[in-house]
Amino acid sequence: MNNYSHIFREGLWKNNIVLNQSLALCPLLAVTSSATNGLGLGLATTAVMIASNVLVSLGKNWISKAVRIPVNVVIIATLVTLTDFALNAWLHPLHKVLGLFIPLIVTNCAILGRVESFASKSNVMSSLVDGIAMGIGFTWVLTILGGIREVIGSGSLFANASLLLGEWSSFLEITVIPEYRGLLLIILPPGGFLVLGALLGVKQKFELIIKNRQLQAVATH
């Protein structure tokens, strides 16, 4: 539980919310039509995940097991509401794009699952690290998926990032393929399934290569 490097490996790769647990696929497929949208939703989810992990870990000794799940849901719902208000107040363009998928973070099984399986049984620091790792793991998949769909679908990358995330992010806006007419299928939800399937295949292939190299290394010794 206190091996932070192990927790990070689990969250970023080995037990990734999307690539391994296949959770949160609904917002993932609907929102990731661009890298900017994927990054925005990923960061919002990460903030909720970190805060909920820490709060549940702090209160685990005072919350009865009989009401633990309802209490955890209320904590997550409160944090999501605050996140929704904050985005609406300070990042209104992003809030308009993400729309209903911000409130739907409440129903994200990944958050409630980590709260139940990890934060309710671990100390505050471990829960904090777990929330960061799982959140970053979720965010990088959303951003990569959105980036691939955006490049193939419209020939750009992080389009309108400065409008959604602020002027500081204007350097992210890139026109990858000038005068590109785009491929609508990739931007639509079916395209999300196609790109996600490709990512899963690449991950499986990568892990197989690593495993074979480890077996070869053992055999040589």
Rank of each mutant, 00 (worst) to 15 (best):
M1H: 00
E10N: 08
L12W: 09
V18K: 05
N20M: 03
S22A: 05
S22R: 10
L28M: 07
L29I: 15
V31I: 12
G38L: 12
G42N: 14
M49I: 15
V54L: 06
L55W: 10
V56Y: 07
K65Y: 10
R68Q: 11
R68C: 01
I69V: 13
V71I: 02
N72S: 07
I75Y: 03
I76E: 01
T81E: 04
T83K: 06
F85G: 09
F85N: 04
P93K: 11
P93H: 14
I102C: 10
P103D: 14
L104Q: 10
I105A: 06
A110E: 14
I111H: 00
L112M: 07
G113L: 03
K121R: 09
D130P: 03
I132P: 03
M134G: 13
F138S: 05
L142Y: 13
I148M: 15
I152Y: 13
G155S: 05
A161H: 15
S162V: 06
S162N: 10
L163M: 13
G166S: 08
S170K: 05
F171V: 15
E179P: 07
R181H: 08
G182C: 05
L183D: 00
L183Q: 03
I186E: 09
I186T: 14
I186D: 06
I187F: 00
L188S: 13
P190K: 00
G191R: 05
G192Q: 02
V195F: 01
L199S: 15
V202Y: 08
L208N: 14
I209S: 01
I210F: 02
K211H: 12
N212L: 04
Q214G: 00
T220M: 03
H221Y: 03
H221I: 00
